[in-house]
Deep mutational scan, measured.
Amino acid sequence: GEDLPLPPGWSVDWTMRGRKYYIDHNTNTTHWSHPLESGPSSG
């Protein structure tokens, strides 16, 4: 998808195989999909 801006506290990194993933430092979790690309989340 597009390179959307990341929310505060997020960063992007790549695996050893070159796969892009996103790090949420607020909750110390990692995600394969961009936080703003996922569907609407409630709460």
Rank of each mutant, 00 (worst) to 15 (best):
G1D: 13
G1F: 11
G1S: 13
G1K: 12
G1W: 10
G1H: 11
G1T: 12
G1Q: 11
G1M: 11
E2F: 10
E2Q: 10
E2H: 11
E2I: 11
E2G: 10
E2R: 10
E2D: 11
E2L: 10
E2S: 11
D3K: 08
D3M: 09
D3T: 10
D3Y: 09
D3R: 09
D3S: 10
D3L: 09
D3G: 09
D3Q: 10
D3P: 08
D3V: 10
L4T: 10
L4W: 11
L4F: 09
L4K: 10
L4M: 10
L4S: 09
L4I: 10
L4V: 10
L4R: 10
L4E: 15
L4D: 09
L4Y: 09
P5S: 09
P5L: 10
P5M: 08
P5W: 10
P5V: 08
P5T: 09
P5N: 09
P5C: 00
P5D: 15
P5R: 08
P5Y: 08
L6A: 01
L6E: 15
L6Y: 03
L6W: 00
L6T: 01
P7Y: 00
P7E: 02
P7V: 00
P7G: 01
P7I: 00
P7T: 01
P7Q: 01
P7M: 00
P7D: 01
P7S: 01
P7K: 00
P8H: 07
P8V: 07
P8D: 09
P8L: 08
P8S: 08
P8F: 08
P8K: 08
P8N: 07
P8I: 07
G9A: 01
G9Y: 03
G9H: 04
G9C: 14
G9Q: 02
G9P: 01
G9F: 05
G9D: 02
G9T: 00
W10Q: 01
W10G: 00
W10R: 01
W10L: 01
W10K: 01
W10M: 00
W10F: 01
W10P: 01
W10T: 00
W10A: 00
W10N: 00
S11G: 06
S11P: 01
S11H: 05
S11K: 05
S11E: 09
S11M: 06
S11T: 13
S11A: 08
V12I: 12
V12L: 07
V12P: 05
V12K: 05
V12C: 14
V12A: 07
V12M: 10
V12T: 07
D13A: 15
D13W: 14
D13V: 09
D13K: 14
D13L: 11
D13Q: 15
D13F: 13
D13S: 14
W14D: 04
W14E: 06
W14P: 04
W14Q: 08
W14M: 08
W14V: 12
W14G: 04
W14T: 09
W14N: 05
T15R: 02
T15P: 04
T15Y: 04
T15W: 05
T15N: 08
T15F: 04
T15A: 03
T15L: 03
T15I: 04
M16C: 15
M16L: 13
M16I: 14
M16E: 15
M16W: 14
M16G: 12
M16P: 15
R17F: 14
R17M: 14
R17N: 15
R17E: 15
R17D: 15
R17T: 15
R17Y: 15
R17I: 08
G18Y: 05
G18I: 04
G18F: 05
G18R: 04
G18W: 06
G18N: 04
G18V: 03
R19H: 14
R19F: 12
R19M: 09
R19K: 10
R19S: 06
R19C: 15
R19L: 09
R19N: 08
R19G: 05
R19W: 09
R19Y: 11
R19D: 10
R19V: 13
K20G: 02
K20Q: 06
K20L: 08
K20H: 03
K20S: 02
K20V: 09
Y21V: 07
Y21I: 08
Y21L: 06
Y21M: 06
Y21R: 05
Y21F: 12
Y21K: 04
Y21P: 00
Y22V: 00
Y22N: 01
Y22E: 00
Y22M: 00
Y22Q: 00
Y22S: 00
Y22H: 00
Y22W: 08
Y22G: 01
Y22I: 02
Y22L: 00
Y22P: 00
Y22F: 08
Y22K: 01
I23G: 00
I23H: 05
I23L: 06
I23D: 00
I23S: 03
I23A: 00
I23Q: 03
I23Y: 08
I23T: 07
I23V: 08
D24P: 01
D24H: 05
D24S: 02
D24R: 02
D24I: 01
D24L: 03
D24E: 02
D24Q: 03
D24F: 03
D24Y: 02
H25L: 06
H25K: 06
H25G: 07
H25F: 07
H25P: 02
H25I: 05
H25M: 07
H25A: 07
N26F: 06
N26L: 07
N26G: 05
N26I: 08
N26A: 07
N26C: 05
N26V: 07
N26R: 06
N26K: 07
N26W: 06
T27I: 00
T27K: 05
T27G: 02
T27L: 04
T27S: 07
N28H: 10
N28S: 07
N28D: 07
N28R: 08
N28A: 07
N28K: 08
T29I: 06
T29D: 03
T29A: 03
T29P: 00
T29W: 02
T29M: 07
T29S: 07
T29L: 05
T29E: 06
T29Q: 07
T30M: 13
T30R: 14
T30F: 15
T30G: 04
T30D: 03
T30E: 07
T30N: 08
T30L: 14
H31E: 00
H31Y: 09
H31M: 04
H31W: 11
H31S: 09
H31G: 01
H31F: 06
H31A: 04
H31I: 03
H31D: 00
W32T: 04
W32Y: 06
W32Q: 03
W32S: 04
W32E: 03
W32D: 04
W32G: 02
W32I: 03
W32R: 04
W32M: 05
S33G: 08
S33M: 11
S33L: 13
S33T: 14
S33A: 10
S33W: 11
S33E: 10
S33I: 14
S33Q: 13
S33P: 02
S33F: 14
S33N: 14
H34I: 06
H34T: 03
H34D: 01
H34R: 06
H34G: 03
H34Q: 03
H34V: 05
H34N: 05
H34F: 06
P35Q: 03
P35A: 02
P35L: 01
P35D: 04
P35F: 03
P35M: 01
P35I: 02
L36G: 08
L36M: 10
L36N: 08
L36Q: 06
L36E: 06
L36V: 06
L36F: 10
L36W: 09
L36Y: 09
L36D: 06
L36T: 06
L36R: 07
E37D: 10
E37V: 14
E37F: 11
E37S: 14
E37R: 12
E37L: 14
E37H: 10
E37G: 12
S38D: 10
S38A: 13
S38G: 11
S38N: 12
S38E: 11
S38F: 11
G39R: 14
G39K: 13
G39Y: 10
G39I: 11
G39M: 12
G39A: 14
G39E: 10
G39Q: 13
G39F: 13
G39H: 12
G39V: 13
P40G: 13
P40R: 09
P40I: 12
P40V: 12
P40A: 12
P40F: 13
P40W: 12
P40Q: 12
P40N: 12
S41K: 10
S41D: 11
S41V: 12
S41I: 11
S41A: 13
S41W: 08
S41F: 08
S41C: 14
S41G: 13
S41M: 11
S42Q: 13
S42I: 12
S42F: 13
S42W: 12
S42P: 11
S42K: 14
S42T: 13
S42E: 13
S42M: 13
S42R: 11
S42G: 14
G43E: 12
G43R: 10
G43A: 12
G43T: 12
G43W: 13
G43S: 11
G43H: 11
G43F: 13
G43K: 12
G43M: 12
G43P: 12
G43N: 12
